[in-house]
């Protein structure tokens, strides 16, 4: 079995609100960059599949040279290999999907492609679906649990609103996971050290034979929401009194 996790390097969620539109537009961010938190769950899912069904899990990302750090994090978590698809120019979800699809084909016989449900910076959630479209594979989104994986099919639980659906699809397949799939594991130092030593192969669009489509999505009015006039109220007293006061306040605000 072969599992390939598609990840993206994004700003840390704690730092996101601090990024100005100008900084974001310039593409040169001064904040700490990490593996997109949703994708960490996808890595965890890939590692669980490897542990439960055998095979190897690899990671792939599309990005600039610095995105290698995100791949090293994936290796440190336990991925067996990683590939950087180097791309410096402006790109949208459709273009990323094109490159990732080529990387998947280049990888060989991949059974399951895993992704997070979205990225914390782009927030489109379009890549997993677009990637499946490009590959011509089925896509399972909102996956909370892999029930069974066989040589030619996968059975998963999807969370849709309040409901949980158990669905089966033929492999190869694109699976986009949600948080419930499992908390991302914390890398051991042994794996961090191993990951630091690995030479991560780089591929370009040219080497993959891909003509990256020009972005079809453009940000026309990229701005921060106006600061909200939020205020914090602390309720004093015993837990019982504080809870009663909180309920009164919520009733007053018509929240309840």
């Amino acid at each position: 079995m072969r599992y390939l996790v598609c990840i993206k390097q994004t700003p840390d969620t704690a730092e996101l609100p601090k990024i100005s539109p100008e900084e974001a537009a310039s593409g040169k961010l001064s904040v700490n960059l990490v593996v997109n938190p949703w994708d960490e769950h996808a890595i965890e899912a890939g590692l669980q599949l490897m542990e439960n069904y055998g095979g190897t899990t690899g990671a792939v990302t599309v990005g600039e040279e610095g995105a290698i750090d995100a791949l090293r994090s994936a290796l440190a978590m336990g991925c067996k290999d990683a590939t950087l698809v180097k791309h410096d120019d402006e790109i949208d979800a459709w273009g990323v999907a094109e490159l990732l699809a080529a990387a998947v084909r280049h990888d060989g016989d991949v059974d399951v492609v895993l992704t997070g449900q979205m990225t914390v910076d782009g927030n489109s959630g379009a890549v997993p679906v677009a990637l499946a479209r490009k590959l011509g594979w089925p896509v399972l989104t909102g996956v909370a649990k892999v029930v069974e994986l066989t040589d030619d099919s996968i059975t998963v639980e999807r969370v849709v609103g309040q409901a949980r659906l158990t669905v089966k699809a033929p492999t190869p397949v694109v699976v986009s996971v949600i948080k419930e799939i499992g908390e991302p594991r914390y890398p051991t130092f042994i794996n961090i050290r191993k990951a630091a030593r690995v030479k991560i192969p780089e591929l370009t669009a040219e080497e993959l034979g891909v003509d990256v489509p020009a972005p079809v999505v453009h940000m026309s009015n990229f701005r921060k929401p106006p600061a909200r006039d939020a205020h914090v109220k602390l309720f004093e007293g015993t837990p019982q009194e504080a809870a009663a006061a909180l309920i009164d306040a919520l009733l007053e605000e018509k929240v309840l």
Binding site: A14, N32, R185, Y186, P187, T188, F189, I190
Partner: peptide, 22 residues
């Protein structure tokens, strides 16, 4: 437990990643 096994109380991970990233 942390460096070799990655086996520690789950809540510590939030503190670890916080210290690492922010």
């Amino acid at each position: 437990q942390v460096l070799m096994e990655s086996d520690f109380p789950a809540k510590l991970q939030t503190a670890f990643t916080g210290m690492e990233r922010t």
